[in-house]
């Protein structure tokens, strides 16, 4: 049990996907300019990431390993993620139009979020079992959401600030992200 807890904490803070592992930077920069959209993206990613890390565990353990096709794992995980995103989008569209409107464009964007693929691949590398994979995926996406929301709050403040002309827009966002990343490095050593 404590093992699972450590996996979760480690995925959220110490090995945060965005700020420590530098995965999923595209949505991190792309949709963090507004708090609302950041939260929407975070929620959509949380759902898909958790689901796809479970599914890719099944694919790996029950299909690729018995057939000795581990070298095809990247390819098959991309397939799994794409299918998960598509199916989630369609089911959501039918069952909850409101949530579908809130998540909107962010849902299909998750397909190309490398953090999702990264989690699936890391699960295999760390030889996590099913529960550990799910917890790791959930933790990673919670960490992603946390950072995205924090960063969007910072960026909303930056919008109002007096910034030198040459730093306006993406440059100052990247500088901020770097400083946040340093701050997150401070969590290193808290748990292995």
């Amino acid at each position: 049990m404590s093992g699972l807890f450590f996996i979760f904490i480690s995925a959220v803070f110490i090995n945060n996907f965005v700020l420590v592992k530098f995965l999923g930077l595209c949505p991190f920069m792309g949709v963090s300019s507004k708090y609302q959209s950041a939260l929407g993206m975070g929620l959509a990613t949380t759902f898909v990431l958790t689901l796809s890390s479970i599914l890719s565990y099944f694919i790996h353990t029950y299909l690729l390993v018995p057939l000795g096709l581990e070298y095809l794992k990247t390819l098959s995980f991309i397939l799994v993620i794409a299918v998960t995103v598509q199916v989630t989008e369609m089911i959501l569209h039918k069952t909850s139009p409101l949530l579908y409107q809130v998540l909107g464009i962010f849902l299909p964007l998750i397909t190309t979020n490398c953090a999702v693929l990264g989690v699936a691949l890391l699960n295999i590398q760390e030889q996590n079992n099913l529960i550990e994979s799910a917890v790791f995926g959930f933790g990673a996406s919670i960490g992603f959401t946390l950072v995205l929301v924090l960063f969007s709050a910072v960026r909303e403040r930056i919008e109002m600030a007096d910034i030198p002309e040459s730093f306006k827009g993406t440059p100052i966002a990247l500088v901020t992200a770097g400083i946040m990343s340093i701050a997150f490095m401070g969590f290193g050593g808290m748990v292995r």
Partner: peptide, 26 residues
């Protein structure tokens, strides 16, 4: 053989998506 297997897996996924899109058509 692995090519055939992966194609088959993709086909299955494709069929799943097709089925879901029919089932949950808006």
């Amino acid at each position: 053989v692995s090519l055939i297997i992966i194609s088959f897996v993709s086909l299955v996924f494709g069929l799943i998506v097709m089925w879901v899109s029919k089932k949950f058509k808006v």
